[in-house]
Amino acid sequence: MQQDSGRRTNRERTETTRSALIDAARRLFVEKSYAETGTPEIVAAAGVTRGALYHHFADKQALLRAVIEAESEAVASDIQASAPRTLPPREALVEGGTAFLAAMATPGRTRLLLLDGPAVLGRTAMDEIDARHGNRTLREGLAAAMRAGAIRKLPLDALTSQLGAMFDRAALAIEAGDDPQRHVDVITAVVDGLRPA
């Protein structure tokens, strides 16, 4: 019988260190901005060595990418929880859009995903990340709605891209103090406007 030695495995230590770096970087990037945060601050906040940082990430930009990936995954998870496949397609699109706006209200998220991420990583890298997460959920919802006849058949990639941009602009407006309900109302009207004639 194997006994628990109380020691962590290499994999557990690796994950703990990686998570500490991502959490510390996120906190500092939100508090100070990506540009104003130095790697010495990140390793100090994470309680790890500089060598540990560079063992896990090639540079500060790679660490930002990991932060962006984690934030994007959290947004997609919130959308999926709010818009399960059991909802009718129209309601799933509205609930998914509303969930996106709520998820983006997490402090610092709009700055990370819509400002710092594109500025540092570039639009192509951000589109790749979004295609795995938030835009993936939107694309799947639109495709399901088209298959069900709940919305008109339109070019799926173009529709996903344009609606995704609309949601991003709404998140920025809400971050700046606009009333979220106004944007939920617009999401609902746009989804209803996609119904077949």
Results as ranks from 00 to 15, higher is better:
Phe100Ala: 02
Ile79Gln: 07
Val94Lys: 03
Val94Pro: 13
Asp59Pro: 15
Ala74Gly: 12
Ala145Met: 04
Arg139Cys: 14
Leu53Pro: 13
Met166Glu: 03
Arg169Leu: 14
Thr137Leu: 05
Gly97Cys: 06
Ala171Phe: 11
His133Tyr: 07
Gly141Cys: 01
Ile129His: 00
Gly134Gln: 09
Val43Cys: 10
Arg169Thr: 12
Gly177Arg: 02
Gly122Thr: 04
Glu69Leu: 07
Phe57Asn: 03
Gln162Arg: 02
Leu154Ala: 04
Ile129Gln: 00
Arg152Ser: 07
Ala58Glu: 15
Gln162Ala: 02
Leu64Thr: 06
Pro180Leu: 03
Gly96Ile: 09
Thr160Ser: 09
Thr110Val: 15
Ala66Trp: 10
Val75His: 04
Met146Glu: 14
Ser77Met: 10
Arg109Cys: 10
Ser72Phe: 12
Met146Lys: 01
Ala173Leu: 14
Leu163Thr: 01
Ala143Arg: 09
Ala92Tyr: 08
Glu71Ala: 11
Lys153Leu: 09
Arg85Met: 14
Thr160Phe: 01
Gln80Arg: 10
Thr124Phe: 02
Ile129Asp: 03
Ala145Val: 05
Ala46Arg: 00
Ser82Gln: 14
Thr106Gly: 08
Ala148Val: 05
Asp168Arg: 03
Asp59Tyr: 09
Ala171Gln: 08
Gly164Gln: 01
Ile174Tyr: 09
Leu112Glu: 11
Ile129Val: 13
Ala102Thr: 15
Ala131Ser: 12
Arg65His: 11
Asp130Lys: 00
Leu159Lys: 02
Glu69Phe: 05
Ala131Thr: 04
Ala70Met: 10
Ala74Trp: 09
Asp130Gly: 05
Val67Thr: 10
Ala99Lys: 01
His133Phe: 08
Gly51Cys: 07
Ala66Asp: 13
Arg90Glu: 14
Met166Arg: 00
Ala44Leu: 06
Ala81Pro: 12
Ala102Ser: 12
Met146Val: 13
Asp179Leu: 04
Ala99Cys: 07
Gly164Met: 02
Ala46Lys: 00
Phe57Glu: 07
Thr98Leu: 07
Thr110Ser: 13
Thr124Gln: 03
Leu172Pro: 08
Ala119Cys: 05
His133Asn: 12
Gly47Asp: 11
Ser77Asn: 11
Ile129Trp: 02
Arg132His: 13
His55Leu: 10
Ala143Tyr: 13
